[in-house]
Simulated scan of single mutants.
Amino acid sequence: MHILTELLISIFLIMSGVFGFVGSYGLVKLKNSLQRLHAPTKATTLGVGGVILASLVYFYAETGHVSVHELLVSLFLFLTAPITANFIAKAYLAQNVRSEDLPPSATAFGWSVYDEPPETMPDAKDL
Rank of each mutant, 00 (worst) to 15 (best):
L27Q: 09
L46I: 07
A106D: 11
K29I: 08
F109H: 09
S55C: 08
T107R: 08
T80S: 13
K42N: 11
S112W: 03
S74R: 00
G26S: 08
F109V: 04
T84K: 09
T41I: 09
S33C: 09
K31D: 15
E116M: 09
V68K: 12
E100C: 04
G26M: 03
Q95F: 13
T5R: 05
S55M: 12
A108C: 06
R98I: 02
L77K: 03
N86M: 10
Y58S: 08
T63I: 01
L37S: 03
K125N: 05
S99T: 14
L30S: 06
L72I: 10
A91S: 12
L75A: 14
E100V: 12
E100D: 14
K90D: 14
Y58D: 10
G26I: 03
A43K: 06
S112E: 05
I14T: 10
L93R: 09
N96F: 13
A89G: 08
G49E: 05
I14G: 00
V68L: 15
H2T: 12
R98D: 14
M1W: 10
M121H: 06
R36T: 01
S33Q: 12
P40G: 08
T107L: 07
A94M: 07
P82H: 09
G50P: 02
L4E: 13
G17T: 11
V18L: 15
L13S: 05
K42A: 10
A108F: 13
N96P: 01
L71K: 13
L53W: 03
L56P: 04
D126K: 12
Y92E: 10
I11V: 14
F109R: 03
A94Y: 07
P40V: 07
A39P: 06
T45D: 03
F78Q: 01
M15C: 11
T120L: 10
G50S: 09
L56N: 12
T80P: 01
L4R: 05
A39E: 02
K42F: 04
G50M: 04
A89K: 05
P103H: 06
L75V: 08
G49Y: 05
S55H: 03
L37I: 04
Y92T: 10
A89R: 02
V97L: 15
I52V: 14
V68I: 15
A108N: 09
S16C: 11
V97Q: 09
K90Q: 15
Y60L: 15
A124C: 07
V73M: 14
Y92L: 08
F21C: 06
A91E: 11
N32C: 03
S55E: 07
K90N: 15
E116K: 13
S112I: 08
A43M: 13
T63C: 05
R36A: 07
K31L: 13
W111C: 00
R36M: 11
M1S: 14
S112M: 06
S24F: 02
L37G: 11
F87P: 06
S112R: 12
L27M: 15
T44M: 15
N86H: 15
H2C: 04
P104T: 04
T120S: 12
E119N: 02
I83L: 15
T80H: 09
V51A: 15
K31E: 15
P40R: 02
T45R: 04
S24C: 12
V66M: 14
I3F: 04
F78W: 12
T120I: 13
V51D: 02
V68H: 14
S24D: 01
F109Q: 11
G23A: 06
S33D: 11
L71T: 08
D126T: 12
T80G: 00
A81R: 07
F109E: 07
